[in-house]
């Protein structure tokens, strides 16, 4: 009992493993469902930078699912 008190305050390695997996798998599942996102991002950078000055690192391409609606979100901050 006394020792358990201290044990429970510290996250176990199994809990950390589970949390790390849940985060990475959420990313990987999204990437695998829409493998074109990376290419799309590259193409957008090419086209936009012909006309305006942008920082490629700040471009954000995201596919989100809200219930039945899929939203393709593209954020391009201009310098």
């Amino acid at each position: 009992m006394f020792f358990d008190f201290f044990k429970k305050r510290k996250k176990t390695s199994a809990t950390k493993a589970k949390e790390r997996l849940q985060i990475i798998l959420a990313h990987e599942r999204a990437a695998n469902k829409a493998p074109f996102l990376d290419d799309l991002r590259q193409d957008i950078i090419k086209v936009i930078s012909k006309y305006v000055d942008i920082d490629p690192k700040t471009i954000n391409v995201n596919l989100q699912k809200d219930n039945s609606m899929e939203v393709l979100e593209i954020n391009i901050p201009i310098k």
Partner: peptide, 16 residues
């Protein structure tokens, strides 16, 4: 190991 918290349990794996 599961009891010590050093291995994911059956339920942990299933949740993932």
């Amino acid at each position: 190991l599961v009891k010590k918290g050093d291995m994911m349990s059956k339920d942990d794996v299933l949740q993932v």
